[in-house]
Every structure is written in structure tokens, then in C-alpha cells.
Design a protein around this nucleic acid. Structure first.
Length: 891
DNA sequence: GCGGACTGCTTACCT
DNA sequence: ACAGGTAAGCAGTCCGCG
């Protein structure tokens, strides 16, 4: 780019100067004059030093794209609006001449012009000429239920032509305007941009050059094309994150009905408290004075400022000044509650719109001049939960997240909000803000860094990337790449029509195609077990086999010879699939650089930490990168790609198992991408890995070595003890979160005992201790001795709304319905705690049960089935342990 | 009318 | 709105049983 500027052109001095000039009369130093001096973000600066592009949107009032930039010196948000005249558009196969015949198009009030353009069509493997229909307003393209161009064009064209004429088709008409703007200008959210004389320019960063060179050196033997992709990703990932100036906040609202959460669409009741915890350290609690509320004795920490308000309106204004002062605002469920409520409440109290910095949408609530991150949405993301945080939190509640990630639980309440005195209310509310803040601050701002990395990879605003799922992230970086290379972004229906559906039969009824295989385990205790696996198997397959919607079942006759094992599909050998290059390069970067670098003690802590954020983000994306092709909701849905990936996976692991056997290694177990090898020699491991590299073109690593592993006959169920004494438990009931504490505690005791076993001989005493554990639990149940009923409760998630369960009534639903009768509100996702009882429905909610009702025999049966999964491998029998002879059991 | 074999539903897990 | 495979428990159904 000709207009690129270098970071080092800005001296420290000029940077300050520019910031001050841009902020006109405001003092850029936040601490001196306080927040009020920073009230509004600067709009349309003429000059701006290098700043992080954090967000993009459409400014309806000006009719242009609007960009939020975070300037890391002043730590403020600047808003830059497009001056290039970029306009929304769609593409169509109709010529301008044909379009002119369509009245609804020609007379469309928002139509700007037609322009003929060329694009490369990956599906048909040829260049196509299309018409770009440009409009003044994004809503004219799509987004309106009626009267938008993407609907008018096919409809009206169909009306005036017969079926022998080619159908009218439109492309790229459902892309959000600001994403379109990002793609067309090649902008990378999360990276540095400056504003010079009112123009937005990308800043070339030299800081990370040495790291980029080191990474490139790792890929000496890759093709030029692959190296190009690696380098592009590396440049974008290596540049470090800024410090994020931010505030977390929470509000409390009183409600006449204690069990009912006030409706934010109504906002009928007063906001009585708001708490703020920020990077500036000026933590503050705002309280509304009310009649009859007393001061409490407890004091807040001296660093926390408390302000009382007589008028709610003044309190709201104080809240808004906080929201305006910070570049990033953190909430937990702020989209649906806090911000929504505040906006509606402020409106109700007559605060003018210009005084409310919130933009309430249908599903989100954003801030006009800052970036709102709703942590509930982010942590709710299953991929984030599982792959970035390794399932460390279970429920997406502030309490569980706080406990699991930052060691800070919510404050428990034994009375409604309205009955709290000022001190209790302040403590309670402040704690919530504190947890939310810490969720973004732990591990050196890991959460913020994750969002930033994901924004860079996906080319999405930080607001969107933190709210949307992994399929959107993947879609967007693929769309970006299409635009970068002037390739037509296909319609989902075209991919499906040309590439078709799947051909294999799934094992599970209702699934679309066959998936992975699981090797039958060899039951028993095995010492010295090496687990070898293909790192990122599916992304590797996508890379090595050149998979993508373009290349699978390509139109070339010659390619049909390149068959994919166990499928009727073939893959192209003339063109490189974009998915293969993009996903493959991300995979290689993680496996060959970031994974190890995140743990490299030679690197500075800060760098290591940044690398850890990168490798986590990559893990999340890579883990989903195959599944999306099999998901109908994905815009590049291509069933044969997903099916081929899984088929090659089966093929690969089968070959590895056979080769291992051929090398004389006993294979104890395997699942999808792994093989468990019994006591293999160094030499055998080396040979297997080399064979895989040579024959399958995929690495096979030793993932871990178990001192010993315990298998039953069940797949996806085992226990392995590592050299350091830590224990992996997979799939066993004892690990599942729904089982009662009473059983789980016993299981954990057994686990702890097994961790200490170092040799076959040591098993004997361990077995004795385990027998004692089991017998003790059994006797306690038989004698009906448990500490508290909650220890006997099962905890099962209500997957659907209560009305959904029509075919059957599972126990947790039965319990839930009993609760509902008592007036408890329940929704999908709630956790139901219930106890098994003797009398008829055989279940009661924990809250409604008494000791005498407990069905002890059911619990004994559950204890047995939980332990059986391990005991039979150890040569023990539950019934023998509890003292039943074989004869007694028979009778 | 009751029990066993079976299927289907639901949840939680594994990769 | 990433995928498929496995385990487990329970609800509900069918069928045999003089």
C-alpha cells in the first residue's frame, strides 16, 4: 500500500501532541481532572497516532462506515468515519441492460448505479462477469423484509422471463455492510491504523520482525504459497496487545416480586445501586437513598468510593459518565439486562437520547463511544468453554466462573435485594463488578487478549467476535480471503447443488455421515502406556489432502482418479483449496511455534503469556474447522468436505493401528486420532512416527505416557496415571458432574489412592483401601447416615423449556415441574437438583425432600454402577466387597 | 396384569 | 447453530404368558 506509514515515524512527543490536538480542549490524562474531562470519544479526528482498530459499524445518520480506534497512549476511543465514498452493493448475473428492465430496481429510491466487474468463480473454476448493484443504504440491499434489492431482482426477473432464460441470482447480498467495508479495504481489526489528514491508513509494524523471521525459518521446506500464508498470519499474530483501559460494572434494581427479575423492556423499578471496578483503580459504588433503608455496619475497603444520590436520574447520569469515560466496558449479561435496563429507565425518567450513551439492539446492547464486552456471551460460547478454558468452569454463571477462574464467588443472599441495607447492597453489587473485572484481568488479561486475537483472525469487530460463535469467525476469515483474491463468495445453495450431499452411513441414527472410529479397549490394568496422536488431525487432513468446497468433487475429469478412501469422492490436484491453505497454515503455526513458545521459559513472561493467548485462540478455531463444513448453518456448508475429512481420519488411524501391530506393539485402545500402545520401546515409537510422516504425510507425536492405565470393556472410559502422579479420568460416571456428592467423594477417594500406586505390587494395598472406601459408603447408605440431603442430589441440566418434553418425562423434568407448581420460574439451561425417593414418581426436588423419603437402594445401585467401571479391571467385585457371597447373590 | 426385551429420549461425556 | 461416537438411565411400548 502506498499510503502506509511507519510506526517509528511517530516520536513519543508528537504522539502526545496529536492526542491533545485531537481531543481539543480535553485533558488526555485521565487521573488529573477525573472522568468528566473525558466525556465523549473524539469523532473524525484529522490526525491520530497508531491506534488499534477495535470495531466497525454502520453510522445510519451519516450513511457511512464508522470505525472505532483505540489509541493506546491516551487509552481512548476515537471514531473515524469513512471518507472514501464506499457504498453497499450486491452482485448479480443480470447485465445492467437487463436490470434496467426491472422497474423495482430502476426506480428504487436508494439505487446508486450499476458497474460491470469480473470475479473468479471457484465452484465453476472460471472467471465470470457480474454486475455490481450499488446502493446508497445497506438496508436497500438486504435486511428489509420487503422491497430490498436482493429480493426484487430475482422476483421481478422471474416475472418477465420464461423458464428457458437463465435465472437471476444475487451474491454477497447478506454480508453485513461493515464487514463488507472491512473486506473491501482489507482492514484487520485488532491491528494498528493511523489517521493522517483525515484518512485511515494501515501502520506497518516493525516491532515483531525478528519473531516473524524466526517463524519463517521453521517453514523452509514449505511451498512458496504456504510460506506466504504463514507469514501473513505471523505478522498479524505477533504484534502485541495494548493495555486495555476498562471498567466492569453491575447494577441492582429493586423489584416488588423477589423471585422475578425486572423486565428490562419495561424498566418499571428504580436502579438502586451501581458498582464500578476499573483498570484505573477508582472503584466506586453509587447508591440511591430510599426511605426506610438503614446503613449497615460493614465497611467497604477504603479504596472504594461510595456516593449517595437522592434522585435516581442523577445516579443514572453518573453511571453514564463512567460508561463514556472508559474505552472498554465489561458486563455480565449487560446485553440483555444492565445496559438495556439503564437505557429504558433513563428514557422513562426523561433523560434525552443524546444523554444516553447506549445503543439498544434486538439482541445486543452496545455503547456509542466505547466497546462493550458482555462476558456472559463470551463464556457461554461452548468452544471457548471447552478449548480455551479446558472446561474449568461448568455453569455460565458469575458465581461458577468467579469460583473456577478467579477464586472469587458471588456473595450469597438470604433475602431479597429490596431488604438489604446500604452496606449489604453495596457489597453484593460491588462483588459482581469485581468478579466481572477479574474475569478479564486474570492471567494478564487473557480474556481481552483472546478477544483481540480472535478479532484479528476472524476480521471481526471485538464486539461481534466476543458474542458470536466459532462458525462466524471461520466464515468471516474465509470471506475476507475471497475478497482479497477477487473471488466470488458463493451462495450456500450453489455449493450444495454442485457438490451434493453425503454418501456414507452414520453409526448414529439421524446423523448425516460416518464419523470417527474408536478402537475396542483391552480391559485390565496396563503399565507403561504411551499415547501417540496426530496433532490437530482434521486440520492436518484438510491441509495435506487439499480439501475445500472448491477442490472436493472438482469439475475436472482427470482429478477423479484422486479418490478419497471409503467414499465416492475425489479431490482436485490442479487448484489449491483456500480452506486448505488458511486452516493448514493456522494449524502449522500452532503446532510448530505457538504451542511450544507459550511454555518456553527462555521467553519473557509477557511474551509467553501473549503466545498462550494466541495458541488458545488457534486451538478454539482449529477444533471447529472441520465441523463447520458439516453444519448446515455454516455459509460454506459442504457435506462432502466434512465427510471426506472424517473418512480420511478413519483411514489414517486404521493404518497406524495396523502398522503398530506389524511392529510388534500391542494397541490397547484408540479414539479418532490416538493410539494407546502397551510398553513400546523407543525404537518402536520412532519407527511408527517416521512411518506416519512418510506414508501419511502427517506427524504422530507421543502425547503422554501413563505409568499405568485402567481400561474396562467400555469405549471412551478409562483412567490413566501419569508419571507425576496426576490422574486422567475419561468418561467414567465418577467424573460426571450430575452425580451426587456422596458418590463422587468416594470416587475421588479411589482416584487419589490409585494415584499413589507405582508398581504392580503396590496395587494390593491400594485394592484393600479401595474396598474400605466402597464398603464405608455402602454402610453409610444402608444405615441412612449422610451429612446433608444435598449430598444425595443429582444435578441435571434442563436442556429445553419445560413445555418441550412431550414424548417422555425424564426425572429431572418431573422434579422441575414440581418446582414450577411451587412458583419457581425455570428455563432451558437451568440446573435441576433432585433426590431419588421411594414413593411413586420416585423423585423429588432437593428443596422439597425429607430424609425418610430417600430411596437408599437406588443410591446403592448407582454407587455400584459407578464403581463397576473401574473395579472389574482391578479384579474386584462390588458385591463381594459389600459382603455378599456368590451364593447369596444368586439367591 | 406383569415382567422382560426392546426402542427412543435425554444428558453427559470423548475426540 | 462446528461434527459424529459412546455410555447410561429412564420412559414408554410390545409381546408373551394356558
Amino acid at each position: 500500500m502506498a499510503d502506509q506509514r511507519r510506526l517509528d515515524q511517530f516520536s513519543a512527543n508528537s504522539r502526545k501532541l496529536e492526542a491533545e490536538k485531537a481531543s481539543s480542549n480535553n485533558d488526555p490524562k485521565p487521573r488529573k481532572k477525573g472522568r468528566e474531562s473525558l466525556q465523549r470519544a473524539v469523532v473524525d479526528p484529522e490526525q491520530l497516532p497508531p491506534s488499534y482498530l477495535v470495531s466497525a459499524s454502520y453510522d445510519g445518520s451519516k450513511g457511512v462506515a464508522s470505525i472505532k480506534l483505540y489509541e493506546p497512549e491516551s487509552k481512548r476511543i476515537y471514531i473515524w468515519r469513512d471518507k472514501t465514498g464506499h457504498k453497499p452493493y450486491l452482485l448479480t448475473n443480470l447485465s445492467p441492460f437487463e436490470l434496467d428492465k426491472l422497474n423495482g430496481v430502476k426506480t428504487h429510491p436508494s439505487l446508486e448505479n450499476f458497474e460491470q466487474i469480473e470475479k473468479f468463480d471457484l465452484l465453476r473454476d472460471k472467471t465470470v462477469t457480474l454486475t455490481k448493484v450499488v446502493a446508497k443504504d445497506p438496508l436497500a440491499i438486504g435486511g428489509r423484509p420487503r422491497g430490498c434489492l436482493r429480493e426484487i431482482i430475482p422476483e421481478e426477473h422471474g416475472d418477465i422471463t420464461d423458464s428457458s432464460q437463465p435465472q437471476a441470482e444475487v451474491w454477497e447480498a447478506a454480508i453485513k455492510y461493515y464487514q463488507c467495508y472491512i473486506y473491501d479495504r482489507g482492514l484487520v481489526p485488532g491491528m494498528l491504523y493511523s489517521v493522517d489528514n483525515g484518512e485511515l491508513n494501515s501502520v506497518v509494524v516493525k516491532t515483531a520482525e525478528s519473531a516473524v523471521e524466526r517463524i519463517k525459518a521453521l517453514f523452509d521446506d514449505a511451498s512458496a504459497e504456504e510460506r506466504e500464508y504463514i507469514e501473513r498470519w505471523a505478522r498479524l499474530l505477533e504484534y502485541p496487545a495494548p493495555s486495555f483501559r476498562r471498567v466492569a460494572f453491575d447494577i441492582e434494581v429493586i423489584s416488588p416480586v423477589a423471585t422475578r427479575v425486572p423486565d428490562p423492556r419495561e424498566a418499571l423499578y428504580p436502579v438502586v445501586c451501581a458498582s464500578f471496578v476499573s483498570t484505573d483503580g477508582d472503584d466506586e459504588v453509587l447508591l440511591l437513598r430510599r426511605r426506610g433503608v438503614r446503613n449497615g455496619a460493614e465497611k467497604l475497603p477504603p479504596s472504594v468510593k461510595v456516593r449517595y444520590f437522592d434522585a435516581e436520574e442523577e445516579l443514572l447520569k453518573a453511571v453514564f459518565s463512567f460508561l463514556r469515560a472508559y474505552a472498554f466496558v465489561i458486563t455480565f449479561n449487560g446485553d440483555d439486562f444492565d445496559l438495556r435496563y439503564l437505557a429504558r429507565r433513563a428514557e422513562r425518567l426523561g433523560i434525552p437520547r443524546s444523554g444516553i450513551p447506549i445503543e439498544v439492539g434486538r439482541r445486543v446492547s452496545l455503547l456509542k463511544n466505547s466497546v462493550h464486552i458482555d462476558l456472559y456471551k463470551f463464556f457461554y460460547n461452548r468452544s471457548i468453554q471447552i478449548y480455551a478454558f479446558s472446561n474449568r468452569y461448568r455453569d455460565v454463571t458469575l458465581d461458577d466462573l468467579g469460583k473456577a477462574l478467579v477464586d472469587l464467588p458471588k456473595i450469597g443472599l438470604d433475602k431479597p435485594i429490596s431488604d438489604l441495607n446500604y452496606s449489604e447492597l453495596a457489597h453484593y453489587c460491588l462483588r459482581d463488578a469485581e468478579i466481572a473485572f477479574k474475569l478479564t484481568a486474570f492471567d494478564q488479561d487473557l480474556t481481552m487478549k483472546l478477544i483481540l486475537v480472535l478479532a484479528r483472525i476472524s476480521k471481526m469487530p471485538m464486539e461481534d467476535v466476543s458474542r458470536q460463535g466459532v462458525s462466524r469467525w471461520i466464515r468471516n476469515f474465509l470471506q475476507f480471503e475471497h475478497r482479497r483474491q477477487n473471488m466470488l463468495i458463493p451462495n450456500s445453495s450453489d455449493i450444495l447443488a454442485l457438490k451434493g450431499k453425503t454418501a456414507t452411513t452414520a453409526t448414529i441414527k439421524g446423523k448425516k455421515y460416518k464419523g470417527a472410529i474408536v478402537v475396542e479397549p483391552v480391559p485390565g490394568v496396563h503399565f507403561n502406556v504411551a499415547v501417540m496422536d496426530f496433532p490437530s488431525l482434521y486440520p492436518s487432513i484438510i491441509k495435506v489432502w487439499n480439501l475445500g468446497y472448491q477442490t472436493i468433487r472438482c469439475p475436472h475429469e482427470e482429478c477423479k482418479r484422486d479418490a478419497i478412501p471409503n467414499t465416492p469422492h475425489w479431490v482436485c490436484h490442479k487448484q489449491k483449496a483456500m480452506e486448505s491453505l488458511l486452516i493448514g497454515s493456522l494449524r502449522d503455526l500452532r503446532v510448530k511455534w505457538y504451542k511450544a513458545a507459550a511454555k518456553n521459559p527462555k521467553l519473557q513472561v509477557g511474551v509467553r503469556n501473549w503466545y498462550n493467548a494466541i495458541q488458545s485462540a488457534l486451538k478454539v478455531i482449529l477444533n471447529a474447522s472441520y465441523g463447520v463444513f458439516g453444519a448446515e448453518s455454516f455459509d460454506l456448508y459442504c457435506p462432502p468436505v466434512a465427510e471426506a475429512t472424517a473418512a480420511i481420519g478413519r483411514h489414517s488411524i486404521k493404518l497406524i493401528v495396523n502398522k503398530a501391530k506389524e511392529l510388534g506393539i500391542e494397541v490397547l485402545y484408540g479414539d479418532t486420532d490416538s493410539v494407546f500402545l502397551k510398553n513400546p520401546s523407543e525404537e518402536q515409537i520412532k519407527e511408527l512416527a517416521e512411518w506416519s510422516e512418510k506414508e501419511l504425510r502427517m506427524g504422530l507425536d507421543v502425547d503422554k505416557i501413563y505409568r499405568y492405565a485402567v481400561f474396562s470393556t467400555r469405549k471412551k472410559n478409562y483412567l490413566g496415571v501419569l508419571e507425576d502422579g496426576s490422574v486422567d479420568v475419561k468418561g467414567l460416571t465418577g467424573k460426571k458432574k450430575h452425580i451426587p456428592r456422596f458418590i463422587k467423594d468416594a470416587f475421588d477417594e479411589m482416584k487419589g489412592r490409585l494415584a499413589k500406586v507405582r508398581s504392580a505390587a503396590e496395587f494390593e494395598t491400594a485394592k484393600r483401601d479401595i474396598k474400605t472406601t466402597v464398603l464405608d459408603r455402602y454402610m453409610k447408605l444402608k444405615r441412612r447416615r449422610w451429612d446433608k440431603l444435598s449430598d444425595l442430589a443429582f444435578h441435571v441440566v434442563l436442556g429445553e423449556r419445560l413445555e418441550h418434553y412431550k414424548k417422555t418425562t425424564p426425572q429431572h423434568v418431573r422434579a422441575a415441574r414440581m418446582l414450577k407448581k411451587k412458583g419457581v420460574e425455570l428455563k432451558a439451561g437451568d440446573l435441576i437438583s433432585f433426590v431419588k425417593t421411594i414413593k411413586d414418581p420416585h423423585v423429588k426436588p432437593l428443596e422439597m425432600v425429607t430424609d425418610s423419603e430417600v430411596d437408599v437402594d437406588k443410591y446403592i445401585a448407582y454407587l455400584q454402577s459407578t464403581f463397576d467401571q473401574v473395579l472389574d479391571a482391578l479384579g474386584l467385585e462390588f458385591e463381594e466387597i459389600i459382603g455378599l457371597t456368590k451364593l447369596e447373590r444368586f439367591m
